[in-house]
C-alpha cells in the first residue's frame, strides 16, 4: 500500500470506530473527543462517548479535549507504527483541553485493520501478573519525634536547636546535621510564618497506605515560620485554592483539624492570611 493510499485510511478509521468499540473500555466515560486531522486526507471529527455507547460525528461538537495532528501521523499511530506518547512528547500530536480524558481513550476501540490487509495473526499471549504488595508496619517515634508530634496535639510547633551552630531543625532531629552533636534544646516556633519555596504538583504519586493517587494540583511548600531564619524551613502543604497567590514572602498560618492525633497531618494545610 503506497504512503498516499495509507493516508486515505483516516476516514475509514473514523468510519469504523463505532463497529470497533470495546465495551469494557468505554464503561463509565461521558465525554466528547475532538480530532483535527490536518493534510489532504484529513478532516474534523468528534467521538461522543456516553452511556456505554459511542457516536462519531463530523466536525467539532463541544469537545472536552481536542487532538490535532497530520493525517500521516494519525494513521501511523492507529496502525501502531508510531507511539502516541512519543508523538505527543515530540510535539507531533497537540492536545487541548482535559488531557486526563485522553489517556482513557487508548482502550476505547479494538485494533484497526486496514481493508485488504491479510488475516490478522493472533499475537502470542504474554502473561502479566498484577498484584498490590501490602505490608503492615509499625513505626516507633522515639523521644524526639514523639515530643514534636505530641506538641502538635496542643497546636504547638516545635523545633530543636543546635548548641554549637544555633541552627534550628524542623522537624526536630536527634543530632544537628551540620555539626553532628546532640540537640537537646526545644524551641517553639510559628505557628504563623511566610511562604519560602512553593512546589505545585500536577502529577501525584500513590498514597503509600491505599495505593491510590491524590487529587492534583496540590502544593508542597517550604514555610519559614516565625522564629526561623534562612533555610530553617518547615515542609508542609499550602491550601490548594491559595496556589495562584503562592509567592515567596506571603504570610501564612496553619489550619488545624478538629481532632488532633499527634500526627503531621493534624495540620490540614497552611493558608494565606488575608490582610
Amino acid at each position: 500500500m503506497s504512503e498516499h493510499n495509507k493516508n486515505s485510511l483516516v476516514a475509514d478509521i473514523f468510519g469504523t470506530m463505532e463497529s470497533r468499540v470495546n465495551p469494557d473500555g468505554i464503561k463509565g466515560i461521558t465525554a466528547n473527543y475532538g480530532y483535527v486531522i490536518q493534510g489532504p486526507d484529513g478532516g474534523t471529527w468528534t467521538v461522543c462517548v456516553a452511556d456505554g455507547k459511542v457516536t462519531v460525528r463530523e466536525g467539532l461538537v463541544d469537545p472536552h479535549v481536542t487532538t490535532t495532528c497530520t493525517d500521516e501521523d494519525w494513521v501511523a499511530i492507529t496502525l501502531g507504527e508510531l507511539d502516541g506518547m512519543t508523538a505527543f512528547s515530540s510535539g507531533k500530536l497537540k492536545v487541548e483541553g482535559d488531557m486526563g480524558l485522553l489517556i482513557a481513550a487508548a482502550r476505547f476501540f479494538k485494533k484497526y485493520a486496514a481493508p485488504g490487509a491479510g488475516p490478522q495473526e493472533t499475537p502470542e499471549e504474554l502473561i502479566v501478573l498484577k498484584q498490590v504488595l501490602s505490608l503492615d508496619q509499625t513505626f516507633s517515634t522515639g523521644p524526639v519525634m514523639g515530643r514534636f508530634l505530641n506538641a502538635l496535639k496542643e497546636k504547638k510547633i516545635l523545633a530543636n536547636k543546635c548548641p554549637e551552630c544555633k541552627r534550628l531543625q524542623i522537624p526536630p532531629r536527634e543530632v544537628c546535621a551540620e555539626c553532628v552533636v546532640r540537640c537537646e534544646e526545644f524551641v517553639e516556633i510559628g505557628p504563623e510564618g511566610v511562604i519560602s519555596t512553593p512546589d505545585v504538583v500536577y502529577y501525584a504519586s500513590p498514597d503509600p497506605l491505599t495505593a491510590e493517587t491524590r487529587e492534583t494540583p496540590y502544593c508542597s511548600c517550604h514555610f519559614l515560620l516565625d522564629g526561623c531564619k534562612g533555610h530553617e524551613t518547615m515542609w508542609h502543604e499550602l491550601k490548594a485554592s491559595d496556589i495562584p497567590r503562592a509567592k515567596r514572602g506571603v504570610r501564612v498560618r496553619p489550619v488545624w483539624n478538629d481532632t488532633l492525633k499527634g500526627c503531621v497531618t493534624d495540620i490540614k494545610y497552611f493558608e494565606i492570611i488575608n490582610a
Binding site: 508496619q137 519525634m145 508530634l149 501525584a204 503509600p208 515542609w235 508542609h236 500526627c263 503531621v264
Partner: peptide, 9 residues
C-alpha cells in the same frame, strides 16, 4: 514515614 512520606511527591 512519620513526616515527609505523607507529603512526598
Amino acid at each position: 514515614p512519620l513526616w515527609t512520606r505523607k507529603l512526598q511527591t
